[in-house]
Design a protein around this nucleic acid. Structure first.
Lengths: 146, 146
DNA sequence: CAACATAGGTCAATGCAGTTGACCCACAGT
DNA sequence: ACTGTGGGTCAACTGCATTGACCTATGTTG
């Protein structure tokens, strides 16, 4: 019966992850919607803030989408003065992306909504359990080669 | 500086959740793609298996989509003999949904891919930390009213 | 019984975000 | 000069959701 319990717990985990992620994305999506932007805009700003000077190709690799898919959002962000694009000094084919102060500001607003949700979810949980939470999520992101 | 560390940890959590969820959905999506089905089909089968005899309205509430959005997928599943639909005995307006054996089979295949990923991610983690993982995810799914 | 409410189905127009394919330019390395 | 690479862009298409409007069948209530 241990096996059966395990299956039930794992099913519960599938469900928890589904609902958690949905709520997690709903709030920023709402905020983005009001600005006429989408999730991809947020992702771009996020990774550009995490790693300023990211190239377009690197961004594609992180987000795992085609360059055509990212083209519009990048253009939108640039036009709105949220993203600054400059050619790399050494290799002028590379376009280095970084957030403008306004872009950084928006990114902070969007991400902080999510951080607040997480902060609340972690409240009162042991530090070691929170560390394990990170460990679990990181393993989930990078499963073994099979 | 404690505050700063906390922000960094929370940012890391945002990222972990993003990547974890992406990997988590990629595998079933791939399987579904081969069958010409989408994520919604999986979700329907999942919730119908969790709660056999679910009505269309209840399904809409759980998935939080419009009836038009679910109409196609339900029809697809029925046509493929994966979903069985019968009128409720007491209120014949209600359509009770349940999986056929074939539907149950497909659902098990799809969900078990995800359960395997989770199982691996939980490997070697303390039982109490896994319980906390569930607690955290459930809180994330149902944040306070603000 | 008539009137209204509810569960659900369906048509239509639309939007958004992604895809593949093809082709372009600018620049780098040899 | 030649080839490779980073990146931009046009076009056609797809998947999946939306809103709005309207239909039927059935239940509930005055």
């Amino acid at each position: 019966m241990v096996d059966q319990d395990r299956l039930i717990a794992l099913r519960q985990a599938v469900e928890d992850l589904y609902f958690a992620y949905r709520t997690f994305t709903d709030l920023p999506d709402q905020l983005l919607g009001e600005l006429g932007l989408g999730r991809t805009h947020h992702r771009i700003l996020y990774f550009v803030q995490r790693d300023p000077g990211l190239s377009v190709g690197e961004l594609l690799a992180v987000l795992n989408v085609s360059k055509q898919a990212i083209h519009r959002p990048i253009k939108d962000l640039e036009e709105r003065g949220l993203l600054s694009i400059t050619a790399d000094a050494d290799d002028r084919r590379l376009r280095r992306l970084s957030a403008t102060p306004e872009g950084a500001d928006l990114e902070a607003r969007l991400t902080s909504v999510q951080m607040r949700l997480l902060d609340h979810a972690f409240e009162g949980i042991d530090t070691s359990a929170v560390e394990d939470w990170h460990r679990i999520m990181q393993r989930l992101a990078q499963p073994p080669a099979q």
